[in-house]
Structure formats: C-alpha cells, structure tokens
Amino acid sequence: MTKPRPTRRQLLAVTAGSLLLRPAQATPESLAAALRDFSGGAPLREGQVRLEVEPLVDNGNTVPVSLSVPGLPPEQVQALALFTERNPQSEVIRAQFGPRAGERMLATRIRLATSQQLVAVARLADGSCWMQRVEVVVTLSACLE
C-alpha cells in the first residue's frame, strides 16, 4: 500500500507556514536565551550596571553606548555584555576583563534596527548578575537597509 501523496493545498500551507516562521528579528524568547547564556542561569537583578545611551537616536547605524559599573571595586566585575530586544540578533557585545584591566568600563558604537529596549548586564566574581534596561527611540534604522 502506498502512502497518500500530500495534496497541493497541504504543500502550500507548509511553505507559507515556514515563511511566516522565519524570524525577522530577535524575539523576547531569543533575548531571554541570550541573557541566560551569559548569566549562566543566575537570576538577573536590576542595578549596579550603568548603560549610557541617547534616548533619542537619529541614526541607528552608529549609536555610541557605554557600559560601566560605577559602584563596585573593579576586581569584582568579571564581564559586561549588551543585548537588544529587536535587532536581528540579540547579542551585541560580550566582554570579559583580565587582570590588567583598569576600571570595568566599555564603550563602543552599535547598530539599532528599530526603537527598542537595550539590556546591559554585568557578571560579578561572586556569580551574581545585574542589569539595566534602557528604552530608545530610533529614527533611522540600521541592520536591514
């Protein structure tokens, strides 16, 4: 006995479905996964880390950002990372500090695909993780154009 061949309608439904399912941008789930990957499962608490970025971004192609942990002695800070909510990929940068680092700070320029939330995370030597969320409005978007 042969298996019934899929009908044209079924094939079209599957194709349309797979097109719809392709992620066009990072989702809250992928952001959560990226955060979990960085924190190693430690709970994220608000505070300690500071993310500086203009709240209104004219040009999403190059957005200056700066991450720091102002209230703690530098040796306690192991790593800093930045994530976005709605860029094509959640991760932006992850940095680990070595014994020769001075203040635990990092500044760079990033791309933003649309108005969204940025999440800065600091991982401390005791394994705890701290974050700050910042909402930004982007006028000219990057990444896809």
Partner: peptide, 8 residues
C-alpha cells in the same frame, strides 16, 4: 570581547 553583527 566577542563582537556580533550589531556592532557598527
């Protein structure tokens, strides 16, 4: 540092 496509 690990850089991702979102770096300008």
């Amino acid at each position: 540092a690990e850089l991702f496509p979102a770096i300008a």
